[in-house]
Computed example of a mutant assay.
Amino acid sequence: MNESKDNRTGTDNKETVQAMLTDSELSQLHSQRYFSGDGTWTEAHVIVAIVDGANDDIALSKAAAAFKNREDKPDPLFAHDKEDTYDLAIGLESLPLAISETPWSSRNAIIELGTDEAADALDLIVADSNFEEGTSIAYNEWGKQLASESAVRSHATSIEENGWIVVGVGLKPTGAGDGNEQYIGETIEVHCPNCGPQPAECKNIVYEERHDGHNGIWECSNCDDVFRGPHPRGPSRQELIKDK
């Protein structure tokens, strides 16, 4: 790949990326790790597509289709603006921030097969997958999970002449789980920023890392706005209006 393409894929380390961002942008990008705006997608993990293509643009298109249609993609907990459960790493200026705790943060977002970098990436794919439990971070262009080391390596070998490894960030819905399932769907009177005390439905529970605690994601029955508020088992619990 030429130098401009390498720059476009974002190989900057975490400190360099942070220095390029304004305080506002940095706060927003960092917070996306645990809060996406409506509370639906709050976890990120690396996923990769191994696809063929005459050039990197075709490979990116195939990877986007693979991620969108991957066979184990999660279902949302409720209707939300972001319909896709992934981001292409090449579109994220903040990739090192989003996945800072893995070796992927310092790698290119699209890697040509048949190179030393691709060989290292394939080793990473194997290391990051748990084939014994049937989980893999790798998919072919149809979104089928490559569920074993041999499947990953043989697929890569079969398309090596025009093949690419495209890195993505998979998003998971959180909140339901960890004892919070019982609260999703409850309607409780809470304070809406627009309307004051109003019945609101608990849409999700998210963990606020900065405050080391959980908040509810509420939808106001009066104005339909979605906002963060108290956890349902807090003081507002006594004002339960109805169960889901």
Rank of each mutant, 00 (worst) to 15 (best):
D84C: 05
C195M: 07
E133W: 09
W104T: 01
V206A: 04
H155F: 03
T135G: 11
D123W: 05
G10Y: 02
R70I: 03
L95E: 03
G37Y: 00
Q145M: 15
V206M: 07
L146Y: 03
A127I: 09
S221Y: 04
H45Q: 09
G37N: 06
I50P: 02
D72R: 05
N194D: 14
D81H: 09
G143V: 04
T42K: 00
N2D: 15
S236V: 06
Y86E: 08
L26R: 15
C192L: 02
I217R: 00
P173T: 11
G10H: 06
L92P: 04
E239Y: 15
I99E: 13
T85K: 02
I137M: 13
A118H: 06
A138W: 01
A54L: 09
V51E: 00
S154D: 12
I137V: 15
G37Q: 02
Q32H: 03
Y139M: 04
N69P: 04
T85A: 13
V206G: 02
R107L: 12
G177H: 08
R8M: 10
K68Y: 12
Y207E: 01
A59D: 08
P74A: 11
I205S: 01
L60Y: 12
A121L: 06
I137F: 05
D12E: 12
G53V: 02
P232L: 02
L122D: 07
Q28H: 11
D243N: 15
P173R: 11
S129Q: 12
I217F: 01
V226H: 08
N215T: 00
P173K: 05
T85S: 14
V48I: 07
N13G: 09
W104E: 07
S31C: 02
Q32L: 11
E112Y: 02
A119R: 13
D23T: 06
F67I: 09
K5V: 06
G10V: 05
E239A: 11
F67K: 04
A64R: 15
H214Q: 14
K62G: 10
E181K: 15
I159Y: 05
W164D: 04
E15V: 12
D23A: 14
D120H: 14
F67A: 10
A54D: 15
P103S: 07
V206Q: 05
S106K: 11
S100F: 13
K82H: 10
S148G: 10
L26I: 08
I165F: 03
W142Y: 09
D23H: 07
V166F: 05
E209L: 02
S148F: 09
I184Q: 12
G143D: 04
G177P: 12
P235S: 07
E208P: 00
G213E: 14
V190I: 13
A121E: 07
Y207A: 00
G175Q: 11
I99Q: 06
E161K: 14
D116Q: 15
T174Y: 14
G179K: 08
Y34C: 01
K14Y: 04
K73W: 03
T11G: 05
D128V: 07
